Computed example of a mutant assay.
Amino acid sequence: MRTLIYIIVAATTIISCTDKAAVPQDWQFEKVIELDGINPIGIAMDGNDIFLSDGDHNRVVKVDEDGSVLFEMEGFERPMHIDFGESDFEITDKVTTSLLKERALFIPEYGRDSIAVMRDNKMDYLVLQDSLDAPAAISVFEDEIAIADFYPNRVLYYDGKEWISIGTEGKELGQLYYPTDVQITENYIYIADAYNHRAQVFDKTGKAIAIIGADQKINAATGIYVTDNEVLLTDFENGRVLIFDMKHQLKQIIETNIDKPTDIFVQDGLMYITNYRKGQLIKYILKDITHE
């Protein structure tokens, strides 16, 4: 009898945990953060610090939760989708060459065809074995790098040992048309295939795996962010963010206060969306869906 009671208790506990894990959630609007004189294109976070690329003013700024500028870095030429990373990448200050071994901010310069690297308030440049033509985004994951190379319609990917070029111009699976954002995950490379109006997924050999959002009437897929559970994609001209599950099925569309979104960042149940045209950050929060 005692054994039976233990089994019943254990089963009840498992069911309870499963029910708790199965509580549905969605993203809900939290607030508008006004940005004075900033037209944000890209966003990255370092801990709780928010960094924005302001391509219209050739700078990167750090802001607080109220949108106040804490400091700014100037001297860039059209900075785009930025990312933080740390690994042993070769960089140069155009005088000396060294290996990057500490955390740094990587900044694609669309107008200079280069990748700036900011560390310790010093600007260096990433050393590449290939030339860029309007780099629009960068993703850094451990010892890997991916760069969305806008005009050549490709992504340059470094797997830790060598560089490969992913994509050619076109509309078929595996082809790109002006990629504007990219993110590396544990197993895949996700690309915002802007003017094919979709996202694409590649493995790390450069093989195309899937298309995301082709049936959603997206008009310029400019920004992408991938979590453990979701793929989030900005729909620039339609003023919305589309959220897909990991099987690439649409889960949710959010539109409240979103206008010309260019990028997204998700951290600890919070989502920040860059409103390029209005100079705003839009904050959403992930909440349980409750039913009356």
Rank of each mutant, 00 (worst) to 15 (best):
R59S: 13
Q249N: 15
S68I: 14
T3K: 10
I211S: 08
E72R: 13
L250G: 03
Y178H: 00
K122D: 01
G111T: 05
D124R: 07
A116C: 02
M73H: 09
K171D: 06
L105Y: 04
A146C: 11
L156H: 04
K251R: 12
I82H: 04
A104F: 10
A194K: 05
F51M: 09
A134M: 11
I209T: 03
A194W: 06
G111K: 09
Y225P: 09
P108N: 01
N238D: 08
H248A: 13
W27G: 09
F71A: 00
I264E: 07
I191G: 04
E292L: 14
K204C: 13
R240A: 12
D235P: 04
M123E: 13
E72T: 12
P152W: 06
R103G: 09
K278E: 11
D235S: 08
S165W: 06
L128W: 02
A11H: 11
K94M: 08
V127A: 13
D228A: 15
M123I: 11
D268T: 03
V60T: 05
Y177V: 00
R240P: 08
A199D: 00
D263I: 06
F236Y: 09
D203P: 01
K101E: 15
Q28I: 10
P108R: 09
P108V: 03
I166S: 03
Q252G: 01
K278M: 10
G37V: 06
D245L: 02
N58F: 03
A220Q: 14
V241W: 03
G174C: 07
A136V: 04
L132V: 10
I258H: 05
T222W: 15
G167N: 10
P108I: 07
D130R: 15
K20V: 07
D26Q: 09
E292Q: 10
R2Y: 10
S98C: 03
K161A: 07
Q280M: 10
Q280L: 12
K122R: 14
R112F: 06
V182E: 04
E230N: 12
I107R: 01
I253K: 13
L156F: 07
T256Y: 07
H291Q: 11
K94E: 05
S53F: 08
Q28G: 05
T234W: 05
Q249V: 07
N257W: 06
I164Y: 02
A199Y: 00
I164R: 11
S114H: 12
S16T: 13
K207M: 12
V182L: 00
L173D: 07
I82K: 06
R103F: 05
G85W: 14
I8T: 12
E172Y: 03
T290F: 07
E169R: 15
D54V: 10
G111E: 09
M1C: 04
T256C: 06
F76Q: 11
I211G: 01
G269R: 08
K122H: 05
E186H: 03
T3H: 14
I145V: 13
N187A: 10
G37M: 02
L52T: 08
E237M: 13
I145K: 06
L70F: 08
L35S: 04
Q183Y: 02
K94V: 01
Y6S: 11
D228L: 08
P135W: 02
V231G: 02
S139A: 12
I147L: 10
I254F: 13
C17Q: 13
C17R: 12
D93K: 02
I138A: 07
T97S: 13
M118Q: 10
G111A: 08
I211H: 07
S131P: 00
G170P: 00
